[in-house]
Every structure is written in structure tokens, then in C-alpha cells.
Write a protein that binds this DNA or RNA. Sequence first.
DNA 1: GGCCACAACTTTGTTGACATAAATGTTCCT
DNA 2: AGGAACATTTATGTCAACAAAGTTGTGGCC
Lengths: 231, 231
Amino acid sequence: MAEKTSQTDAEPIPPQDRKGRAEDIVQILRKRIADHELPPGARLQEVELANQFNISRSAVREILGTLEQRGLITRVPNRGAVVAKLEFKEIYEIFDVRVALEGLCVREATRRAPPEVWLPHIERFGDDMERAIEKGDIARYSDALEDLRKETIDWADNSHAAHFLDLVLDKTHLIKLRVTLLPGRAAAGRKMHLEMLHFMRSGDAANAELTKKRIIRSARDWLERYRSFIL
Amino acid sequence: MAEKTSQTDAEPIPPQDRKGRAEDIVQILRKRIADHELPPGARLQEVELANQFNISRSAVREILGTLEQRGLITRVPNRGAVVAKLEFKEIYEIFDVRVALEGLCVREATRRAPPEVWLPHIERFGDDMERAIEKGDIARYSDALEDLRKETIDWADNSHAAHFLDLVLDKTHLIKLRVTLLPGRAAAGRKMHLEMLHFMRSGDAANAELTKKRIIRSARDWLERYRSFIL
DNA sequence: GGCCACAACTTTGTTGACATAAATGTTCCT
DNA sequence: AGGAACATTTATGTCAACAAAGTTGTGGCC
């Protein structure tokens, strides 16, 4: 076995910046788990992580604690931590929660933001995007979607909803991507999002919310239809 | 100063039951914080807690970590943990989240549970309860409400929604109680819940959901009106 | 040859000591 | 007296060693 697992970071060890560093490492691991770079079932060994990030075992332990709270890993006593598996049922649970919370965020964002906020997004989801999707440039759509989501949550100004959405989106990040990649999904999603954005622009919070809910439910239906492909 | 803060528990220290014990202590502290037995701003000192529960400081540390994740305490570096304060804004945020998630739970519970499940609750919220409330027996109403909430969440069968509701209800537990104690609120709440229960009994998930949402929004309005009393 | 028992090894759990930062108390100088 | 610098105290942050549990490998016995 190799002497040491590669150290991602070999800085001169800042003196008392432990706290912030731990926070950073949580983000890194969140991303790796969300992207399945650490796939479900993968073991997270304390000493290995300690070496990898050049931190002490107790720091690793604390980090594992927060990842456990977030539901990203499960710890079995005396056996360590593994990346949590996402049960089928959980996926549907999360869709329902997303319908509720993202709907809330769209509604509130529509109420709070000045209408012109949505103009750049309407532009971005327009004809150019339609052509890009037709050519298979799904990443562009996905990026636009992500930016819109961020801005919406920002304007919704509800830290609790934002936090909870953060938690569930970590778990279903990859599934969301895969659904977007399904043939025809991006085109359908673009159209509906454009519709939603027009409601937002005109300040029609109720219809914006309904449309967002329809979008998420529709994504769930696509997942259901193609589930053998995606899971 | 006293030698030792009183030990709540002086068992012979079970051998390797650390994990479960820590979990218990989290529940205890959750309750104490929710009830304001530990009021906002109260300090939680590590050694003190360690003595009180007869556990090691690192165990306390882990417990404080989970309480922090739950948003019940805030930790400032090198200064320790204090019970988190609930800002005005947060209360409104939580009401909105509750409308979304409890609405979801009522809808799904209505869909999943056999209708007769709600009969005992309808009974319980009936005329007897009306008279009890008139006589000022608010506790009885509050208990019935709590049982209904638990059964609803149970039948809704959405662990994510249940978890998130757990988190926010810890924070607003006391406020919820105080609103219930406002003159007239319990009577109004009873009536609306009875209405909701009839929808649930007849399997009308959509109207049950709408009614639940109306109930929570109404509670928010009461809070707003009497906020100088409650906060 | 299969299987149980035992032993070595690996990994997590726990404890206590030490380091460091903030708060408090004290002293000395103006 | 007032205040700044310093010392003390108190609590948290960090680390490394030790203990316990689990896993794996080996050997003997039937």
C-alpha cells in the first residue's frame, strides 16, 4: 500500500483557521458525494481523509458528523461511514418536498423581486437556447437552470426553505442531471420555464408557483417513465 | 461555586452504549431548548454538560455539533455555544415552510390513510372539545392537535418532510403554544381542524390540504396581531 | 476438504493532557 | 482616580495515545 494517500492540500497549515477549513472540506465532500465521485456505498475512512486533507482525525470526525446530519453518509458503530444510498422511495419523497418548497420560493421571489430581474433569464431561455438544445447542448440549459434557481431562492429570501432545498438537492443532484439528459426533456423544460418566467415577470405569483410545481411533477413523471435508464 | 453540577444520571455507565446515550441527550436538550427551559442566549458549557450527564467532553462536543446543525444553538469560535435566538424574520419563514410542508403531509396522509383513521380525531375535536375550550382547558386541545399532527405525518409517509418539520417545530414550539393560548384562537382552530378532518375522512385531499394551509396562515395572522404579547 | 476457534491486524471509539483564545482581574503609571 | 498593560482564569480547540470492536487470515480438528 502507498505510504500516504495524496494530499490535496499541502499549505503551511494556517494557524487557527481550522473551523473555516473544516467547513471547506464539508463542501468538497458534499460535491463529491452529490456527483457520485464518491458513489453510494463508498467507505469514508477517517485516517485516509485525515491524510488526504492534512487534518487531524478529530477534525475528520466532526466533518463526518455534519455529513451524517445532512443525510449524505450513514455511520454504523465501529464500522465507519459509507456514502448513503438513495432509496427509490426517498426520491419520490424528495420530489414532493421540492414541489412544496420550490413552489414556495418561486411564489415569494415573484412577489419580492422587481419584475425586470427576470428579463435576462427570459432572454436566456429564448430562441437561442431552443436551438442550442436541439443541437444537444444540454449543459447550457442546465447552467441557465441552475442560475435561475439560485436567483429565485435568493429573492425568495427564506433561509429555512433554502437550507432544506440545499439538503435535498445534494441527494438528487445526479438524478436531476440525468433526467435533463433524457431526449426531449430539456426542450419541454425550457418551454415550461419560459412560461413560468413570463408569469414571474408580470408579477403573477400564483401562476408562477403553479407552473413551477407542474415542472417538477413533470420531471418526476419523466423519471418514472425512464427509471430503468436512470437508476 | 458548587463542586459539581447535579448529575441527572448516575448509572453504572453502560459499556459501549455511547451512541444511543448521546442520541438521548440530544433529545433531552432539544426539548429543553424548545420549551425555553434553556432560553435563547443561554450558554451551554462543555464541562458542565459533561458532568451533568456524566459523559466525556468529546461526547458533549459531538452533541453540540448536532444541535448546531439543527439550528438550535450557535457556536462562536473559542467562546462556546449559546441557545440560538429566533429572529422575527425567521418566524415568518418558518410559517411559510410549514404551510408548504404540513400542507403536503395532510394531502398525502389523506390519500394514503383509510378514511376511518380520522374518525377518532373527528370525535375528539367535537362538541366535548368545544365545551372544554370554552372552559379554558387549552391543554386538551393542544394535546389533541399534537396527536393529530403525529398521525398525519405518520400516514403521509414522507421522511424528508417529517424531518424538516421536526427541525422547524423545535424552533417555534413555544410560539405555537402561546398562539393557541390567545383568547379565541383555540376555538377558531378547533373549528377549522374539524372542517379539515371531514375533508380527510371523505378522501378529499385537495380541500384538506387547502384547509390546513388556511389554518396555518390564520395562526400566522393571529401571531401578527398579538405579536407584542407573544414575543 | 470443510468448518470452527483463535490470533493478528485494521479501524473506530474514548479519554486525558496540552495549546490557544477570550474574559476577567490586578497593578502600576500618569 | 482613570486607564492601559499585564497576569490570571476559564473555557474551548487540538492532538496523540489507548481501548474496544470488527475483520481477515491461519491452523488444527473432525
